[in-house]
Design a protein around this nucleic acid. Structure first.
Lengths: 205, 205, 205, 205
DNA sequence: CATGAATGAGAGTTCATTCAT
DNA sequence: GATGAATGAACTCTCATTCAT
């Protein structure tokens, strides 16, 4: 495939992402994506042969990017707080609608495609693992209380997923997101009393 | 509407529920429900005119029942622990697949029907409120540490939703669910150290 | 399925037959049949779900009818000549276009559907077997020379198929068909010299 | 057209032939041929503008070659038996799958293209004529019984076509082909009793 | 000459919805 | 009330054919 084809593929993925964000997964048709891309019906099939293929391509990439961001941050020797915070902040932006999310589409997709669930698990495990690493790092630095970081990795990862799915529908205000994150992370903090919501913001700056 | 018609409607809802559990919302067609009910195609339209109408009827009822269960328990003067535990246990059963759940269908539905999100919010608020009441009750009895029960009501409600959506796809073992609930509730416990996972079970008995 | 549905199915088969006669098999679309039947696109799918299904239904029936006709004639104790002649005459009518034939469609179908060839074989064997019975009967009556009737059953059956496929395209005149049948059957005749083409006709009367 | 273009055209015809043998005519698309030739989509159109054009080119050539083979043999003063036998043997090889045949494609083509049937007729007549010449030659040499060689030329030509169309689907064993040819040619033989099947083979050697 | 991306017509198929019975 | 046949819109997917490069 030439460079131009690669670009076109990229363009289609980008447009398709917008469609998935807007309509979830199950209701998206090839026609929808065709319209969004402003190409011909047959043209899309030159690059992808189903919504499923498009979706999986997008999903795998996003999962990879998300965990890579964490690894990258660790490499740069930022404080554990800062890293955890950035990670969660990215979610926050999505939750607040500043940056749209495919969370729904993801859920619809894996509901419909039972045989692909291993991909989903892989993504979740990757996320949990990345968070575990941050926590280990933070405990070592005496930033966090010592806890079972395997369990807490999963806990935070799962909480973030729940938040991602609940918030868009609920349309909670930003403060409420901070509130929830505060409750989640409190047990990790060495001196929780000293922190005030939205403490995440304070820490960041 | 006669009594017989009422029964038929009830029957249809029951069967439709099974379909939603199995296929989510977006992929369910009137034809699916017709098949599940073993009723004529036109016949279904005498009672409901769309999957949306059927779904909303079911959803409103379930939301009501769930909060009512909590209220009922409070009325019976059970311990806060017992009530919270029963509530969470019901989720656990669903999560472990012993009792099927419409969680996915719910998410799909509200994704597709933006204008109905207020209903979803009402349901979530009802759940959070019910949990808040349990917490207030437990704090009063000195079963729980004093916390902001409004925040914690939402926190637990949201966590349960996240769990409900994550677990079915992940196929985690029961211990992991206990582990997660433990991490969630730990800050509420007066003597967390004394509790071992699966502490929920221990408390129950 | 009610009686009316049965009639409709019959009607569709009848119309579809005309389409297959006219266009063969491979080029026939569900849309063609829909047009021929003057029903809606979706309507056809209530009765048949593919051209393949329609074709096989027609084919099986025709094969059955053709061999049944032979059995029936034997039962009525007609002379072997008369029976063989009638059988061949039916082909002749088809060949001359007085009665249209699906021969082409049959060939196209079994080319395309290798896995159904056993059906074709069953039909051919049935035909060969029926002719063998006529020959045995005729030899017993001393109408025919004694020959290996198994071989000759296949020989005549195969010849008729070849004729059916060649004639429509060739547009040979009726005399030429008689000529060919004469050459085919000559070795069976006890006094071939005494017969003149179109001897089949003479025998019939 | 330059020499190189001529070669390319030749190459395309060769590959297209393989496709027609495998898939008949009606189901063959320009795309199939493009794939088989490993050529660009637009490239094919520089040489041929439809499957029909390609097919007709192939068909005309094959018809010519087949009759030429007969003429050539006569020229070499082989015995009529030997020539007839070689001609039929070539068919046999095709029938047994040792040498693939376009027979099906031919039938499909002329079904679909009524206006081209004159070409088919021309080919059949050519074949019948070639066989007639062999028979005349054989009668003159007193190899065959005297018969109406016009009729018999058509008879044998038609029989071979029938065989070609029936056998591939039926998957008959080689002996059965010999059996059938024996029944066909028997009336021509001066002393048929002396011949045993597969007599064709015996004669050849 | 040659390429292969792009187009759009058209086939298959499914269902929501209607309506005569 | 209840049925299920019938309709037609919408969607998926494939290819013949064109055209810029």
């Amino acid at each position: 495939m030439g460079k131009k084809a690669e670009q076109k593929k990229e363009y289609i993925l980008e447009k398709a992402r917008e469609v998935f964000i807007k309509k979830g997964y199950a209701n998206v048709t090839m026609k929808d994506i065709v319209s969004a891309c402003d190409i011909s019906r047959g043209g899309l099939y030159l690059y992808f042969s189903s919504t499923k293929e498009i979706f999986l391509t997008l999903f795998r990439r996003e999962a990879r990017e998300r965990t890579e961001a964490v690894e990258m941050a660790m490499w740069e020797e930022m404080t554990a707080w800062r890293i955890l915070n950035d990670t969660i902040s990215q979610y926050k932006e999505e939750l607040l609608g500043f940056k749209p999310t495919m969370a729904y589409a993801v859920y619809e997709f894996f509901l419909e495609n039972e045989d692909e669930r291993v991909v989903r698990q892989w993504q979740f495990d990757g996320m949990a693992e990345a968070i575990r690493e941050i926590l280990d790092y933070g405990i070592e630095n005496e930033e966090f209380n010592p806890v079972d970081t395997n369990q807490w990795g999963r806990h935070i990862a799962m909480f973030l997923e729940g938040l991602a799915l609940t918030m868009p529908v609920m349309q909670f205000p930003p403060e409420r997101i901070d509130e929830q994150i505060y409750l989640l992370l409190q047990p990790l903090m060495r001196k929780p009393k000293a922190l005030k919501a939205p403490y995440i913001m304070e820490q960041t700056v």
